[in-house]
Computed example of a mutant assay.
Amino acid sequence: MLTAYDFPTAKILDEAGVDVLLVGDTVGMVVQGHSTTLPVTMDQMIYHSEMVGRAAQRAMVVVDLPFPDGQLDILHSVKCGARVLKETQCHAVKLEGGAEQAERIEAMVRAGIPVMAHIGLGPQSVHVLGGYRLQRDIDRLVADAKAAEAAGAFVVLIECVPSQAAAAVTEAISVPTIGIGAGPDVSGQVLVTHDIVGLTSGYTPKFTRSFGDVGLVMREAAQSYCQEVKAGTFPSDAESFE
């Protein structure tokens, strides 16, 4: 599972064999340049989800419900989830929270909206949590996962927890688990695509790994373009019309 926010990226990831594409509210940080995910709006999520949904031919596409659309009254959240399914070609929504979100998850699933639950570190609750901190309470994590599963979540994403905590959660529930900063003992992994291809603009989390350096390639291409334009070697006859 990897994040995607636009058509060309989603198309590449889909063709590469990525099973699930996440249109994450991380768009606020890695694309818009904010310090948190909190400024992202529902309309912006729909905008990006439309692009990703059109590109995906085989991958499942999951869309984040942004703050505060996943925290306001339950009917509002159901309506937002319905927008995702009606206005994009995406398949499910992701909702931050565990036991405290059980009623909301149940209502959304009952309305025909598949829900991926998100437990552990919740970036939308960063101010309540006092920052981006490792979540160590295994009992609470297991209880959150069980509550989400019982409410109808088809998968549970676990963020920024010790490996043994993620293993305990995976053992405790029957639906798949997806880890990010949660060690290897989960059903699958998710990372932010920009982090794995070298398009980061600052801090890189401990739990990510660089699998390429697209940023370097882009910088070199832009430098070469500038040099050739200034030298008068671009455009050449081959790139000009007669």
Rank of each mutant, 00 (worst) to 15 (best):
L65P: 11
V62A: 06
L85M: 13
C90Y: 07
L72M: 04
V84E: 08
T88D: 05
G70D: 01
V78G: 03
K79P: 01
M60S: 15
V84D: 10
L65W: 04
V63H: 09
V61F: 07
V61L: 11
Q89P: 01
L85R: 07
A59I: 06
L65A: 10
R58E: 08
T88L: 04
L75R: 11
E87C: 13
E87L: 13
K86Y: 06
T88M: 03
C90F: 07
A82N: 10
V63L: 09
R58V: 12
K79W: 03
P68A: 11
E87G: 12
D64T: 11
M60P: 01
V62W: 05
E87M: 14
L65I: 15
I74L: 10
D69E: 06
R83S: 12
D73V: 00
L75K: 06
T88F: 02
P66W: 09
L85N: 13
P68N: 09
P68Y: 03
C90W: 10
Q71V: 01
G70M: 00
V62I: 15
V78A: 05
V62N: 06
A82M: 11
K86L: 12
D64N: 09
V84P: 07
R58F: 05
D69R: 15
Q71P: 00
I74T: 13
G81A: 09
Q71D: 02
E87T: 12
C80N: 10
